[in-house]
Design a protein around this nucleic acid. Sequence first.
DNA 1: GAAATAGTGTCTGTAAGACAGTATGTC
DNA 2: GACATACTGTCTTACAGACACTATTTC
Lengths: 266, 266
Amino acid sequence: MRNEKQYYEQEGTESEFLDWYKSQDLQNYEKPSVTIDNVIFAYQPHLRKLQMLLIKRAAHPFQGKYALPGGFINPNEEAKEAAKRETFEETSIRIEQETQMWQIGAFSTPFRDPRGWTISIAHTTFLYPFVESKASDDAFKAEWVTIVPAALDEEEPCFVNQAGETIHLNDDLAFDHADIIRTTFKRIKEALAYNVDITQVLGPSFTSRQVQELFYVFDSKFDKHYSLSNIVKIYVTRLHLLEKVGQVTIKKQSAGRPKMLLSYKK
Amino acid sequence: MRNEKQYYEQEGTESEFLDWYKSQDLQNYEKPSVTIDNVIFAYQPHLRKLQMLLIKRAAHPFQGKYALPGGFINPNEEAKEAAKRETFEETSIRIEQETQMWQIGAFSTPFRDPRGWTISIAHTTFLYPFVESKASDDAFKAEWVTIVPAALDEEEPCFVNQAGETIHLNDDLAFDHADIIRTTFKRIKEALAYNVDITQVLGPSFTSRQVQELFYVFDSKFDKHYSLSNIVKIYVTRLHLLEKVGQVTIKKQSAGRPKMLLSYKK
DNA sequence: GAAATAGTGTCTGTAAGACAGTATGTC
DNA sequence: GACATACTGTCTTACAGACACTATTTC
């Protein structure tokens, strides 16, 4: 038997090896369930606020807590594709090909799921346009929640659901989804110095004030005193990550000079 | 049956649910194998070069190619722990608790492993002190290879093994390990503006020239003309990521003024 | 002393951020 | 015209990077 193993591993051809390997039924060691989770951001145009999609769990485990959309990955499906598919299945929200998605990383803390050994690959999605979600299952209702920016760097962001209740990361999230959300916010904040993919939630064009308010969700330095002209200087003139695409043409927007419109570049 | 499901999911307690869930044998869907891979860097003190650990595969698949150390994750083992364990098992190199390790991310391209559905969680390790590796298996020989920095930003780094042969990312790597290595280099380069964990490979203290040569491996801007004084200015004075810890005391180092010693902070 | 190496201080160009002033809208 | 809003240009401060100069060593 050792000779057989050595023959196929080292002396035969690769296709001989693979035929032999698959005939061996080496599948008897334990494997984890692998899931994906998706931290989805979208800009609610009427409230003019950034929102995040959470699912309220009516069923065990973590009954009554909020969770991220997600689910099991299919055989030979890329993690990003699984995230798109599961998001559609759970919330009827379709993530188009051109939508920006990042992988945040794999979360594998032991016993993170009480049902058994499960590893999750977390993603984040910058969705546009904003769409209401339709829950496919009464037990798991998807809900857009408004993000309340962290006032100071010490504090954490929190969320307000459609009933006006506050959702705290420490108390109200299922599994280790609070960790996943914290890591996602940190990653987006760190990237703002050279990457503005998050502006895609604002749609094809947007104003510098919208950018400022969006960035403020992730980094308190972009507060109401932060100069809009500097956003243009940094992201349009220097980094070329945004570009000017004209002005607001329809009047009656509000008092004041017409807003310059920016757009995400490339 | 629907009523039973609904009872345990929504009406019973969580522990009732979990007992029921585990009795259901819902394990009949297919699961992937989950592996970890580890991009390990260490500073070879005699050559004064940064090296990376690769394993030459004598067996199929990818016979004759180089691969990263790695292997299967154990049930309820954190990915980082699995990376440490597998590194020890394959190369007899022990990664201590305090050694810096980053997770790079999950790689899930379909059919990335010809043996079957496999997802890998890639890590990178900044090892100190440098140790020679002992291969546990004749079929997979671990080898420290020297990193040849990319001359221009357009080019890729390549590697030189102990026999003096050049290893190219495009031709000589098994699985999708070239992708993993590229992503790792990119991640370290982007982090250099605010994170110098990589300096841990240099040990408890090191000179500014060592830092410059180390950073040059990841970012061509740190070339031989890059001013050493600016490294001190940026990382010691402004960012406080490194600190001065005295001078080289033993003479007979080389001609010239005694070198200032720096160390990784925190 | 010559050569080699490294640290110090200064200079310059650029960029971030603040802000005063100006332009353009509504009511 | 009063007021609201947002763009423009300038000023200040800070810092990255370059470089000339000085310090300390070996041979």
